[in-house]
Every structure is written in C-alpha cells, then in structure tokens.
C-alpha cells in the first residue's frame, strides 16, 4: 500500500518534470515547476523529512514560483512579440546525453544503496551527541552545532545573491508590473488584515518550535518573506535602489550575529565554531530569520531595498 503511494508520487514527479522540460509554452512550464515543488514537499514528508517539506513548500514552491512568474511577466512586457517564440531547439546530442547522465546517476545511486551504512556515520554521531543537547530536533542541531560553517556561509550566499541583484538592477526603475495597475479591492485589504498577523504568528511559532520539532530559521524566514511578497504584490511595498539603514542592519544581522557568537568559543577554551547552548541559539536563529526574510523579499522584487508605498 505504501509502496503503491510511493510509486504514484514518483510517477507524478516524472510526469511533471517532463512537462517542465518538454512543454511548448513557457508559462505552462513555470506552473508545472511550481506544482512539482509542492509534490516534492509531499515526497519529503513521505521520506521522513518534515523540515525539508516545510522549506520546500515555502521556499522551493512559493518564493521561487512567485519570482519566476514575476520575471515571466516582466519579460513579456519588455518584448511582447517574443511571448510565443519557439522554446525548443533541435539538438541531436541532447537525448542521448540526457539518457547517459540519467543512467550514470542511477548506476551510482544503486551502488551507493548497496553499501552497508556504517554504524558510526556522521548522522548517528550527531543523533548521539544530540541526546545531551537541548535541541531535540536533529536537523536544527546539525545545522547549528555540527555544520555551522555551512549555515554561516549559506547566509553569505544569500547576501551575495542580494548584492548581485542590487548591482544589475535597472538604473531607472519601473514599478512592479503588478502594482503599476493597483487593483484596490476591499477583499485584499481584508485578506491582508487576516493573513499578515497570522503569517507573523506562524513564523514565530516555526522559529520557536525549531528546537524540538520541525521548523527553524529557514522555514520561518521563508514564511515571513512570503508575507513580504504578498505585500509587494498588493502594492504596499515598492522597490528602491538602495536599502535604508535599518534594512542594511537587518540584512547583515544574520551573518554578524552568527559570526560574533561563533567566535566566543576560544574565550571558554572551546573551538571557534562552538556555540553556547540555550538562549544564544535562539538569538542566532532569530537574527538569521530576519536576514533570510529580507534577503528573499529583495531577491523577489529584484531591488536593493524596499519602501512602504505612500497611499
């Protein structure tokens, strides 16, 4: 029964993947990729990874999907006559090469599956060490305590992406196409009034729960960024070329806080990336949440900063 469900999910993934790469219309491909992201979230929870399911649904499907759709709309506005241009080119090598790559990956994967898993794998060591730690969610624990460099550098990657976006943004900015023709409607006001506080609550919950249950800074940050995306799409926020002082602080907050707390280790005779338990972890996670949310929002509207639109 469960195997049948797995096979059904896998077939769904394959069908959607094929639709993404083979469809004629770009818009359809984008929608299919979003649906694929949502289905991946289901697959993650099937595979016992609820943290990934949350992150995939919020970041992989929602934020990426919104970015892609907005970029599609901008491209159409810049060159409307290109909207229906042919999307595929003929290539004799593509299919054999793709088959070869797929077969290679499958062969490698099956060899990997055959390997017996060693008793003292990194995951087992992390789970064992987690017994003494306050964090009972192993994924958050691994992200902060055992792979801290990864997490710190990931914040760096987000910042670098924002810097890149800021550098290539247009000199004279057009408004977001969506908000250029704002559609004042009482329903969106009502929706925002309900949803924004709810989203902030959910983000706070995810951040707090991240220590012991699925959740954490990335999921919370992505959910908060979703609220920002909603505000941008309904015309409450508008892009600016430069971030305000507060936004600069918020952007750097994650990296700076993490690096500062991670470098106190030597004072206590510990290694550099050692993190004190307890409140320090929540401070780091909270700072990272703010930075992640703002970075993702700025990546979405592809601007250096953001500003409230005066009504």
């Amino acid at each position: 029964m469960t195997l049948a469900l797995d096979i059904l999910l896998a077939l769904g993934l394959l069908w959607l993947g094929w639709q993404v790469v083979s469809g004629r219309a770009l818009f359809r491909s984008i929608v299919m990729l979003i649906v694929l992201g949502l289905l991946m979230a289901v697959v993650w929870s099937r595979l016992g990874a609820p943290d990934l399911a949350l992150a995939e649904a919020a970041v992989g499907a929602a934020v990426t999907g919104a970015m892609l759709l907005l970029a599609y709309r901008r491209i159409i506005e810049l060159r409307p006559e290109r909207a229906h241009q042919s999307l595929l080119r003929r290539s004799r090598l593509a299919a054999p090469l793709a088959l070869l790559c797929g077969a290679l990956v499958m062969g490698l994967g099956f060899e990997l599956l055959k390997l017996s898993s060693p008793a003292d794998s990194a995951g087992a060591a992390a789970l064992a060490a987690m017994q003494q730690s306050e964090l009972s969610n192993p994924v958050t624990g691994v992200l902060l305590l055992f792979r801290g460099y990864d997490t710190l550098l990931e914040m760096g990657v987000l910042l670098a992406a924002w810097l890149g976006v800021k550098m290539v943004q247009p000199a004279e900015r057009q408004e977001l196409p969506v908000s250029r023709t704002p559609l004042p409607t009482y329903l969106t006001d009502a929706l925002l009034a309900v949803v924004i506080p709810g989203v902030v609550l959910v983000a706070g919950y995810l951040l707090h729960a991240g220590g012991s249950a699925p959740g954490g800074a990335f999921q919370a940050g992505a959910v908060l960024a979703g609220a920002g995306v909603l505000l941008a799409l309904t015309g409450r926020l508008r892009p600016t070329p430069e971030p305000s002082q507060l936004q600069r602080i918020a952007l750097a907050l994650g990296v700076v806080t993490f690096a500062a707390i991670a470098s106190v280790g030597p004072l206590f005779g510990k290694p550099v990336m050692w993190l004190p338990e307890g409140w320090a972890l929540y401070v780091i996670e909270g700072a990272m949440t703010i930075s992640i949310a703002l970075c993702l929002l700025l990546l979405f509207i592809s601007a250096g900063g953001v500003q409230r639109r005066e009504p």
Partner: peptide
C-alpha cells in the same frame, strides 16, 4: 478556514482580472 479565505480572495481577484 485559512484555505477557504485564501481561495475566496484569489478566486475573486482572478475573476476580476
């Protein structure tokens, strides 16, 4: 409740558009 709220508003917006 959340689902119904979101689907109401998005359906309204799509219909208007």
């Amino acid at each position: 409740l959340l689902g119904i709220t979101a689907s109401t508003v998005s359906a309204h917006l799509i219909a208007r558009y």
